[in-house]
Every structure is written in structure tokens, then in C-alpha cells.
Computed example of a mutant assay.
Amino acid sequence: MTSKQGVVLYGPPAAGKDTVTTALTELSPTYAQFARLKVGTGKSTGYRMGTVEQLSELEAAGAVVYANSRYGNTYVIDAPGLDDAFAAGVPVVHLGQVDGVRALTDGYPASWVVVLLWCSRETTAERSAGRGDSDTTARLTAWDATREDLDGHPATVWDLTLDTTAASPQEAARLIDQLLTQRAGAATA
């Protein structure tokens, strides 16, 4: 069993992935959001901005664990980036596609805690507008796609499911940390 531990937060836009990650990092500095490689334009905070050439090199080396396109950009989870993230602590990977969750948990050896964070479409609209997103309509389209994705993969097993309108970010972080700690204890027992 690998000693590497990571967290996957899956959910629609504005479900609380950033907020729960912040609560995790406040709980323990070993947690850090995994900065995906982003090829494109727009928001750069939380990403490693890359080029089409870099993506081509990673693909040629077989180092792309998962890539998806949304909002006119390509978002990449790459093995070298994950290696660096695990060397620094416990990476928290944000995903909005079940195929991405499966590609990551099947394609990169680690003990992954996979968490479904959920909120209603209305909550996504309110939170998106409240944080000043200029692309709320696109985020609602992504919410719809996430709902369809979940409906299309009913057999997906989540280690933890949280409604972020009911659980506080701190409670979510505590439950995730507790699950990770239990898994680490079971691995050493």
C-alpha cells in the first residue's frame, strides 16, 4: 500500500471546493490545493499556467493523468505536478467530472479519499453571483453537466458525500481529515 495520501473534491461549480480546501489548510498545513496545469486564458490563481507545447510534451511522455476542456481552456492533472504535490504534503485535487476522478484514482498510485461536495443549482447561481463571477451562465451549464455526469455514473462510490449548504467548511474539513487519518491508521495496522 502506498504511503501517499490525497484528497479528491468532486462537485459542481460553487459547491465549495475552494472553501473546503481553505478549511483543510487551516486545519493542517500539510494540505494544499493541487494546482492543475491550465492551457488557455483567464483566471490564473490556483493554476500553473502552461502552453500548448508543454501539454504536447506531457502527452508524448505519457504524463497526463487527466485533461478536460471547459470555459475555452484545457485543465491538466499531470504526473510530474502530482509528484511535486505529494512531496510537499497532501494534495487536494478539485474535479468536476466522474471520468476525471476515475482517471486520477486509477491512474496515479496513492490512497485517495474521494469526496462529493454538492449544492443545488440555485445555490450555485447565488454563490457565483455573490463572488462576482462574470460567467455565471457558463457555471450553471457546468452544474447541469455535473448533474448529468452523476446521473450517468450511478455506481460511483464516494468515500464521503457532503451537502455544503448543510455542512460548514470546517465540519467538512474535519470529516475529511478524520477519514484520511483512519485510512492511515488502517494502513499501518
Results as ranks from 00 to 15, higher is better:
2 T>E: 15
4 K>F: 09
5 Q>E: 13
5 Q>K: 08
7 V>R: 13
10 Y>V: 00
11 G>A: 03
18 D>W: 01
19 T>C: 10
24 L>I: 11
28 S>F: 08
28 S>T: 09
30 T>Q: 08
31 Y>W: 14
34 F>N: 10
35 A>K: 15
37 L>K: 04
38 K>R: 14
45 T>D: 15
45 T>N: 12
46 G>T: 08
48 R>C: 02
50 G>R: 00
51 T>H: 10
53 E>M: 04
56 S>H: 13
57 E>Y: 07
69 S>N: 12
70 R>A: 15
73 N>I: 00
75 Y>S: 05
80 P>H: 06
85 A>V: 04
86 F>E: 01
88 A>D: 12
88 A>T: 07
88 A>E: 10
88 A>S: 13
89 G>R: 01
93 V>Q: 08
95 L>D: 06
98 V>K: 03
99 D>Y: 00
100 G>R: 00
104 L>S: 05
108 Y>G: 12
109 P>Y: 07
112 W>R: 00
112 W>H: 02
113 V>F: 06
116 L>H: 14
117 L>Q: 04
120 S>H: 03
124 T>Q: 04
125 A>S: 12
126 E>A: 09
129 A>Q: 15
130 G>P: 14
131 R>A: 10
133 D>K: 12
134 S>I: 04
134 S>Q: 11
134 S>V: 07
138 A>V: 10
138 A>W: 06
139 R>F: 01
139 R>D: 03
139 R>W: 01
139 R>C: 05
142 A>T: 12
143 W>M: 07
144 D>T: 02
150 L>I: 06
151 D>G: 15
157 V>A: 13
160 L>C: 10
162 L>A: 05
163 D>S: 11
167 A>Y: 12
172 A>F: 03
175 L>W: 01
175 L>T: 01
176 I>H: 02
180 L>R: 07
181 T>K: 12
181 T>L: 13
182 Q>W: 08
186 A>C: 01
187 A>E: 15
